[in-house]
């Protein structure tokens, strides 16, 4: 089987705090992988190591076959990333943001024109190309973020709490787009606090205090824990491992 993420004993310490502790996981390609866990559980640190932004203290890992320490430049070229906080240029237009990011990813003029057209079609950003981004509403900004993350046609995309603060309709549209892209072969890593969203994933993992508690398909995990849904499983895990007071 082809794995998009393979981590072995991945550990990250900041001083005496262990943010991620011996994380080992194998995620198959072409699937939606939901990384769940409360704030401070080590999700963001894990993502940052996967993206090659920070180096692990020990352990190793590969993303799309590239070593996360030695080949971080290759990883950066081949993944798309969308952060929870809107982080495109508010003072530029939709088109200018797209132009900027396609140049940063090294697309030539022909590729750029073609990819931008595809993304604009996909995100239905017609008529908004010359609008200054700060005047867009939350849902449109989110579409633009996803669009810019997909400009260079990555095979793997990381979405860090992509739907926080977005209305339910936009959220549904967003997930439909993601699912459609997955069916075309895109691998997706998504973190979220919405358990009904996590249920849409092919695989989910729970992290708590830097540890990986479980990994599997949502239905397997629900069954194992004799629960009705992921939300109950989530709460159960948090209580078992130190309770709400640790949050």
């Amino acid at each position: 089987m082809d794995y998009v993420i393979e981590l072995k004993d991945l550990t990250k310490r900041f001083g005496n705090i262990t943010a991620v502790d011996k994380l080992s996981i194998k995620v198959p390609s072409g699937k939606i992988f939901g990384l769940l866990g409360p704030n401070g559980s080590g999700k963001s640190t894990t993502i940052r190591m996967i993206c090659g932004i920070i180096k692990p203290t020990s352990g190793h890992g590969t993303v799309m076959g590239f070593d996360i320490v030695k080949e971080s430049e290759k990883i950066k070229k081949s993944i798309g990333y969308m952060s929870q906080k809107f982080s495109l240029y508010e003072d530029l237009t939709v088109k200018e943001n797209m132009d900027f990011y396609s140049s940063i990813y090294g697309l030539d003029k022909k590729e750029r024109t073609e990819r931008e057209r595809i993304i604009i079609d996909m995100m239905e950003l017609h008529d908004r190309e010359n609008q200054i981004v700060s005047t867009l509403s939350g849902g449109w900004k989110q579409r633009l973020s996803l669009g810019c993350a997909l400009l260079h046609n990555p095979k793997f995309i990381i979405l860090d709490e992509p739907t926080s603060g977005v209305d339910p309709v936009s959220r549904r549209l967003f997930w439909n787009t993601i699912k459609k892209l997955t069916s075309e072969g895109l691998s997706v890593l998504v973190t979220t606090h919405y358990m009904e969203e996590a249920q849409e994933s092919d695989f989910v993992a729970f992290m708590f205090n830097g540890h990986l508690l479980t990994f599997g398909t949502p239905s397997e995990i629900i069954k194992e824990n004799n629960s009705n849904n992921l939300e109950d499983v989530f709460i159960k895990y948090v209580n078992e491992h130190g309770g709400m007071d640790k949050l």
Binding site: K76, I79, E90
Partner: peptide
């Protein structure tokens, strides 16, 4: 300040 750095650091720049 604007958080645009967060997007830039994950690019090959």
């Amino acid at each position: 300040e604007k958080g645009t750095m967060e997007q830039l650091i994950v690019t090959p720049i």
